[in-house]
Amino acid sequence: MEMLNIEHLTKLFPLKKKLFSRDQQYVHAVDDISFKIEKGKILGLVGESGCGKTTTAKLLVRLLKPTSGKIYIGGEDIAGLKEENLKKFRKNIQMIFQDPYESLNPRLTIHSTIAEPLIAQGLYNLEKIHDALEVVGLKPPEGFLYRYPHELSGGQRQRVAIARALVIDPIFVVADEPTSMLDVSIRAGVLNLMLALRKSFDLTVLFVTHDLAVARYMCDDIAVMHNGKIVETGNAEEVIRNPKHSYTKALLSAVPIPDPRAKRERIRIRGKVV
């Protein structure tokens, strides 16, 4: 059964009009993409910066309004919903942001931050906040409740962000490069935590990343995005071992390997004039 079904999703951003120019020009940030995620699976959306992967993530949680296309979550299309009608659906879908230094309000305590989605849904319960903190490995929860983000380390902050996303039991989570700002020795811990939580909460996840190695580690399937379009999708291991599209091949050959003996054929896209 698919949890998420995207059909012909498109987002255009209008460009500033030139003086006296009549026709409006657009940037095709997301250009007619379609994909599905089955319940309990993690799909990795991989691409370089500016390829439209973050725009896609924001469309799915409806921080942005799609220009056209459909977003079915659990069978319901949310693409056209108005702001007022979104509140109910916000309970089902949450997002984890890239930069834990930026995604937590510096003036709110950890307690207030995690309480926010609960208060918005009218479900406030201190017990739940305790549980959420424990689940993400911030123990004992009492020790964290009344601290401020700046008193925590990067890894702890990202755990708080994960706790906030999970505290209202969403069914679908969008994670936008959740570990790219973290130090390597911390990163593995957060990745493992997300894998464990996926299992225990039976979450469906869209994992946005630029790092193919991380995508391979985290995801069941991979979709490669380039210039607003999805150029290749498939089983993660399959895409990494046997890429079909030339862009995927170029991307793979550019990934540095933590092994000095790995001599690989390198394919370059020399499209841009250098």
Partner: peptide
């Protein structure tokens, strides 16, 4: 560190 080469190993933080 995850890698795109070799068998998939569990990361140890």
């Amino acid at each position: 560190f995850p890698s795109i080469e070799g068998p998939k190993k569990e990361l140890k933080p």
